[in-house]
Design a protein around this nucleic acid. Structure first.
Lengths: 245, 245
DNA sequence: TCAATAGTGTCTGTTAGACATTATGGA
DNA sequence: TCCATAATGTCTAACAGACACTATTGA
C-alpha cells in the first residue's frame, strides 16, 4: 500500500509494450481525490472546498492530477499541502474508482486517498474550505461521494492495524478524547473502566505531567501515544461479522 | 470498493475538463494485475503464467488492460476467466501501484486485484499456468511481486470482514480444512476445540449429512457456509497490533 | 492391534462489561 | 453546597486455551 518515494512514475524513455493479445495498455485520464478526515462531535468530518459554483452552493473533495515524475502518494501529499498548508498525520491510498459516475475533472479513473488530521484542526482561512459532518454531506459529484464513503470505511477497518485513532488527535490528549475517537470509529459506546484497562494492558500510551481543565469537573491528565516495542500480539478469531451475509 | 456493474468506464462524449489550476487530468497507461490465490499446504499459492521467455524461466501474474466501456472490475473478471475458465469465488480490488518499478506491460499505473479460488483447483491444462507457493515465488517483475504481496496481505486483513476463508474452500468442506485455512491466514496454529466452539457460537456453518474418509482416521463430516442472519456482533477493542510502532 | 484423525467434555486463567466508589474541580 | 467529570476498585459472566477423553476408520 505504501508507495516507494523517489521513484519516477513515468520513466521518460520507456514505451508502452503491447500485451500478449496485441492490445497496448489503455490510456486513461487520472485524478486523485483526497478525503481529509477529522473527529467532529460524535461523527467524522471531511474537509471540502467550494466548487466552481454554477449559482448554487457546490462543494468538491480536494482533487487534482499528477505531475510528470510524481507518484500517486506524492500527488496526494501535494493536494494535502494545498488544502491544509501542512502534511496530514496519516495518509493512505484507499481505492481506484472508475464506474463512469460524475467527477469534477471528468477523469476516467480517480484514485481515492484518505487523510487524518487532529481534532480541532481549523479549516484554512479564506472561506474556500469548510468541515462537513460525514452524516450530513452536501451535494457532491457521485464519484467523490463514493471516495468519501470509502475513506471513512477504510479508516474504520484499519484502526486495529495502524494507529489511525492517534492521528485524529493532537500529540497530547485526554483519555476521554481518545475514548470518544474510538467510539466514533467503532460506532458504539465503550465502558470507561474497560477502555482504560485495555489501554494500560497494551501499553500504547504514556502519561505526561500535564493536566487540562475544561468547564466543570475534575481536570484530566494528558497522555501521549507511545508504542512500546512488545511482542506482536497474535490475532484472534472473529466470526461475528461473517454472519451478516 | 465494489464497482457498479453495467456502467461505462469511458463515456465517449465526455471531454477531459481542465482542473482549477489549468492542468488537465494526466493521461497514463493502465494495466490490471490479478493475483489468484488458493490454499496450498500451510501456505497460500498464486497462479502464474509462463511469460514471454527470453531463454530463462520467466513467470508473470495474469495481466492485461481494459477494453472501451469496461470497468476495472470487469477487466479483472475477464482476466480471471482467461486464466481459470471461470469466475473466482471472491474478487476484490487491492491497490493502485505506480512506483515506476518494472511491469510486463510497462504500464504507468497498475491496479492490483486479488481473487480466491477453492482448495484443490487445478492449474489450467496446457502447461501455461502453474501454482507457486507465495513463500517461494520465482522471479517476477518488481511491481507484480508487490501486487502479489499486497493481495496476500489484504486477504489476511479482510478475513474478519468478509467470508474470504470460505471462498478458499469448495462449497462443502471439513472443519479441519476450514481450520487449516484460518491457520494459514492468521499465520498461527489454533486449538481444535476452541475453533469449533467459536464456529458453533457464531453460527456461520451448517452440517450436511455427508461424510468424507481420507486415508486413515475417522471420517469427517462435511459442512457448508451458512451465514444465518444475526444481530451484527459488535467490534471489540484491539490495541495489540498498535504497540509495534 | 495400533495408528491416525474426528469430535466432545471439562477445567482454569483471562478479560469484557457492569457497578460502585473516590477524587477534584467549577458553578 | 451541589454537580459534573476523572479515575479506580471489585464482582461476574463469557471466553480462550489446555487437557483429557471417546469415536471411527485404515493399515
Amino acid at each position: 500500500m505504501t508507495l516507494v518515494a523517489g521513484r519516477y512514475l513515468f520513466a521518460p524513455v520507456k514505451r508502452a509494450r503491447t500485451a500478449p493479445g496485441g492490445v497496448p495498455p489503455r490510456r486513461v485520464t487520472l485524478a486523485i481525490d483526497l478525503a481529509i478526515l477529522t473527529p467532529h462531535g460524535r461523527q467524522l468530518a471531511v474537509l471540502l472546498r467550494r466548487g466552481a459554483a454554477r449559482g448554487r452552493d457546490r462543494w468538491v473533495v480536494p482533487t487534482g492530477s499528477i505531475a510528470a515524475g510524481e507518484t500517486l502518494e506524492g500527488g496526494a501529499e501535494r493536494l494535502a499541502r494545498g488544502a491544509l498548508g501542512a502534511l496530514p498525520g496519516w495518509l493512505a491510498q484507499i481505492a481506484a474508482i472508475s464506474d463512469g459516475r460524475r467527477h469534477p475533472l471528468e477523469a476516467d479513473l480517480s484514485v481515492a486517498f484518505a487523510a487524518a488530521v487532529p481534532l480541532g484542526t481549523p479549516a484554512p482561512v479564506g472561506g474556500e474550505h469548510a468541515w462537513f459532518s460525514t452524516d450530513a454531506l452536501p451535494m457532491l459529484a457521485a464519484r467523490q461521494r463514493a471516495s468519501v464513503d470509502s475513506a471513512v470505511q477504510a479508516l474504520r477497518m484499519r484502526m486495529d492495524q495502524e494507529p489511525v485513532a492517534f492521528r485524529l488527535l493532537p500529540s497530547a490528549f485526554t483519555l476521554s478524547e481518545l475514548q470518544t475517537v474510538y467510539e466514533v470509529l467503532l460506532g458504539r459506546r465503550l465502558h470507561k473502566a474497560s477502555f482504560r484497562r485495555a489501554l494500560h494492558a497494551a501499553g500504547v500510551v504514556e502519561a505526561t505531567d500535564e493536566w487540562r481543565s475544561e468547564g466543570r469537573g475534575r481536570p484530566a491528565q494528558l497522555f501521549r501515544y507511545s508504542p512500546r516495542r512488545r511482542r506482536a500480539g497474535h490475532r484472534t478469531l472473529r466470526f461475528e461479522l461473517l454472519s451478516a451475509g
